[in-house]
């Protein structure tokens, strides 16, 4: 197999001193570290070389996007909001479909299997595995202090050969996994942001955070990965959702 090299932006982060166990916390910290360099940031990784493209249309299976929108309370708690999440979902699906269409790729829609079926079990395990792998990539690739010695100058993460199951079930070449969180400041939080600014401090308001990865369904390898952190944007709005998806698919290899 050809050695893989990593295409890496020049952004460098301060080493995180957090324990590797506190995954969620590290991910939040990585998000804030990214933000410290600007209002909206993305940073992507991919494996070396051109991706194999079948002759004609490339079929990309969109796994069920993991989306949740929430309100930030004055104290900084997140209150999940089902209505906003349902508003955002079609905007995101439409944007992704359009964008892939522009790249001569067709988005294959994931069909939810009955909860007790073996197909449901297999697909859900892959989604869970992708969540774990995605979080590991964020922790070990984005937070400087946590780089794994064995993966320092390469990008070789994989969901393993079982991902081929999706190729067989859907006739797709790649699977696209999308994870998006967006939050908006409540009135109380906005007041606090203003008070904070008046006192010379910084109180964060809402935050857009997401990651996406493209998995080669022949090998199970993660061939592209991107992290998005932004203090602006609104997934409840079609146009703004499209902008967020464009940033999310930054340097998308297809």
């Amino acid at each position: 197999m050809a050695p893989r090299t990593m295409n890496r932006d020049k952004i460098r982060f301060r080493a995180s001193k957090l324990s590797a166990r506190r995954r969620g916390l590290i991910i939040a910290v990585v998000g804030l570290a990214l933000l410290a360099t600007g209002c909206t940031q993305t940073e992507s990784f991919h494996s070396a070389g051109d991706l194999a493209r079948p002759v004609g249309m490339t079929h990309v299976l969109l796994m069920p996007p993991d989306i949740s929108l929430a309100e930030v309370t004055a104290a900084g708690l997140l209150e999940p909001n089902a209505e906003w999440t349902e508003m955002a979902r079609p905007h995101i699906l439409n944007a992704l479909r359009e964008m892939l269409g522009e790249r001569n790729a067709e988005l294959v829609t994931y069909q939810e299997a009955p909860p007790d079926s073996e197909a449901f079990h297999a697909a859900t395990q892959l989604v869970k595995l992708h969540n774990a792998v995605g979080q590991s990539i964020i922790i070990h690739k984005y937070a400087g202090g946590n780089a794994l010695p064995t993966k320092e100058d390469k990008f070789d993460w994989s969901l393993g050969s079982r991902a081929a199951r999706l190729r067989d079930d859907y006739g797709a070449d790649y699977a696209l996994f999308v994870y998006l969180r967006d939050s908006y400041a409540s009135a109380g939080r906005v007041a606090l942001v203003v008070i904070g600014a008046l006192l010379g401090g910084y109180v964060p308001g809402g935050l857009q955070f997401g990651f996406a990865s493209l998995v080669d369904l022949h090998t199970g390898d993660v061939v592209w990965f991107n992290l998005l952190v932004s203090e602006t944007g609104d997934l409840r709005d079609a146009e703004s959702a499209r902008e967020a998806c464009e940033r999310l698919l930054d340097e998308f290899p297809l």
Partner: peptide, 22 residues
């Protein structure tokens, strides 16, 4: 109802349940 805070809570819990099922 969809616009309630309770629906948001259920949405997050449904995610937990989906993971628990497998």
């Amino acid at each position: 109802t969809l616009e309630s805070d309770e629906a948001g809570l259920w949405m997050e819990v449904d995610r937990i349940e989906n993971n628990l099922k497998t």
